[in-house]
Design a protein around this nucleic acid. Structure first.
Length: 114
DNA sequence: ATTCTGACGTGGG
DNA sequence: CCCCACGCCAGAA
C-alpha cells in the first residue's frame, strides 16, 4: 500500500516544501513521516538527495540547529553560504534564531496527519 | 544471512 | 547546557 512508498521520497517531498529562509530538523520530518525516531534515515535520505536537484538539503539541520551535514555538501561553507543567502544567520555551523527559522512540517502543513 | 555504520532524537544523570 | 547509552531503519561490505 502507500506504506510501500519509498521512505526517501517522503523525505524529499517534505524537504522540498520547506519555504525560503526556513530550516527544519531531521526528527521533525521523520515524525511527520510517521517514523519518529528514524531521524537517521532522514539524514540518510538526504545523502541520496544528492541525486536529486530540487532538494534543499541545506535547509535541513539537526534539532540543535547545527549544520551537521555540511561536511557532506561536497564543500565546506557551501551549506552555510546558502542559508545566509536566504537570510538565515549561521555562526560556527550553528543556526542563530533557530526557533525563529524553524519550520515544522507536521505543524505548518495542513492535513498530513497519518 | 550477519555486522556495522550513518547528515539523529530522546531520556536520564 | 553537557555527557552517556539506547533506539531507529536502511543500505553497504
Amino acid at each position: 500500500m502507500e506504506s510501500s512508498e519509498k521512505f526517501f521520497e517522503k523525505v524529499y517531498a517534505v524537504v522540498r516544501l520547506i519555504p525560503y529562509g526556513k530550516v527544519s530538523s531531521y526528527g521533525a520530518i521523520a515524525r511527520h513521516l510517521g517514523s519518529a525516531g528514524a531521524s537517521r534515515m532522514v539524514g540518510w535520505a538526504m545523502n541520496a538527495s544528492h541525486n536529486r536537484a530540487d532538494i534543499p538539503a541545506h535547509r535541513v539541520v539537526n534539532r540543535k540547529g547545527l549544520l551537521t551535514g555540511k561536511h557532506h555538501f561536497g564543500g565546506s561553507r557551501l551549506m552555510q553560504q546558502l542559508l545566509e543567502n536566504e537570510g538565515v544567520v549561521v555562526k560556527d555551523n550553528q543556526v542563530q534564531y533557530f526557533d525563529k527559522h524553524f519550520w515544522d512540517p507536521g505543524k505548518e502543513l495542513p492535513c498530513s496527519q497519518k
